[in-house]
Design a binder for these strands. Structure first.
Lengths: 245, 245
DNA sequence: CCGGACATTTGATCTGGATCAAAGCGGGCC
DNA sequence: GGCCCGCTTTGATCCAGATCAAATGTCCGG
């Protein structure tokens, strides 16, 4: 409990009072992408716009899955932990990512904001209803879930078979690509997560993450800017070091 | 290429010549579950029943995703490999599992039969059409994809944060549970995969897998029956050793 | 601009699992 | 039923990354 903000600190605005979707940064991604005007209006009527602070826990594994979310600003991480506290971070979510959809009524992961974040929140029941009325959206979501699955597969390869150096190179390149796809700045590339969070994503320790970043820096493959940004200086070499191709 | 059978060795029967769905062992699972009679008939009309031999590669990462499959008998493994040959097995599929659905037009994984296997194969385009006409099936598939994602998350925890002993205990308990859910025999529990495949699933080496199984055996937590079966002798202790609870 | 708490880096040592190297063995095939 | 060939087990050694232990930054609040 390190000063974690909680649900009652949400600063919430009703859908009809918030900025309309056409100004939303996440509009062109994922669920919201390619909704027609009528669909968008209906979906937006179900939405509650939220802003949450750094370290805010959106939900925890085991919680009833009452809501689904669409991230519009900020970074959120999904993780799962073992009873003794060891944690595996499953991924870092960026604006446009869809969060919290579960097969049954229970969350299987923890979701925590790494930065201040803004989200659209939907009641699960209402969202399910929307999906039933809009099968094309359900199909889009199915495609999204499939690409999440492909991404999980790449992460499993990273965790099961890559060396520390390969893991960090892969992490940096992936983050750069994902950030770029969302039109976020990639040079320098923001690292909204701590070294500890990078460690929990890559299956390493803080010290190893730090040492590998140090080595990449002294090899002039990256420039480390403060503690929360890097510049990738040699994509080709990083690619080679990533082990993926 | 160790005697791998390939596509032309498929022994294929047309849908209308094969045993009807009502005798299919996979009928009560996944996609086929709870289809009404009319839907089942339509879907079956699209199906080609296949039988493939041990080591048969169904598809490889990078292949165009022309078909989706429903496994009805046997075991199939999904994997991804690095260019230098290191392999990560993502999961072992049992009868009832649905295989090969992709977000775009390309497979992202390799799929290989570990035993002789029977499958229903559907043209991707025809299957997509069926989904459009049957939104309830699309929703079911979406739910399936979500639980696959939850399973991938558990596997990421195993690969990123568990010890060798915890990995093997987890693997054995999971396989037992999954086999049980499909009404397969669990005592003794069949291990249709080699030690090398267990190693590639758990992110370990063959030697470590063998040593850990040896230790579990000498601790009287399992009985090793030949090379392809085990008996779990102390679920509570295995559970504790699995690190998960 | 300063202080102080926490994040990060760096260094020394340890160790779980990998790697290298031989035996066992099992089960498919004739 | 016997004979291989490849799988599996077992043993000895090694090493990448973990752990333990200090420094050093850095950023935030006052």
């Amino acid at each position: 409990m390190t000063g974690m903000t909680s649900l009652h600190e949400f600063c919430a605005t009703r859908g009809d009072l918030a900025a309309p979707c056409r100004h939303c940064g996440a509009r062109e991604f994922n669920v919201c992408q390619a909704l027609d005007a009528a669909q968008q209006e209906k979906l937006f009527a179900l939405a509650l716009r939220l802003q949450v602070g750094k370290r805010c826990r959106l939900f925890s594994a085991g919680d009833p899955a009452r809501y689904v979310y669409n991230l519009t600003e900020g970074t959120v991480c999904l993780s799962r932990s073992l009873p003794d506290g060891r944690r595996q971070i499953l991924g870092f979510l960026l604006p446009g990512d869809f969060i919290g959809f579960e097969a049954d009524e229970t969350h299987r992961r923890d979701a925590e904001a790494l930065t201040e974040a803004k989200l659209c929140r939907f009641e699960r029941a209402a969202f399910d209803g929307f999906l039933e009325d809009n099968p094309d959206v359900a199909l889009r979501l199915l495609r999204l879930a499939s690409s999440d699955l492909a991404e999980a597969a790449r992460h499993e390869v990273l965790l099961g078979r890559k060396t520390a150096l390969e893991r960090i190179a892969t992490f940096l390149l992936d983050l750069r690509d994902r950030s770029g796809a969302r039109h976020l700045r990639t040079q320098p590339l923001a690292l909204p997560m701590t070294r500890g969070e990078i460690a929990d994503y890559t299956g390493l320790t803080i010290e190893t993450v730090s040492r590998v970043l140090g080595r990449l820096r002294s090899d002039k493959l990256i420039e480390v800017i403060g503690t929360s940004a890097v510049r990738l200086l040699d994509d080709g070499q990083l690619e080679r070091l990533s082990g993926s191709a």
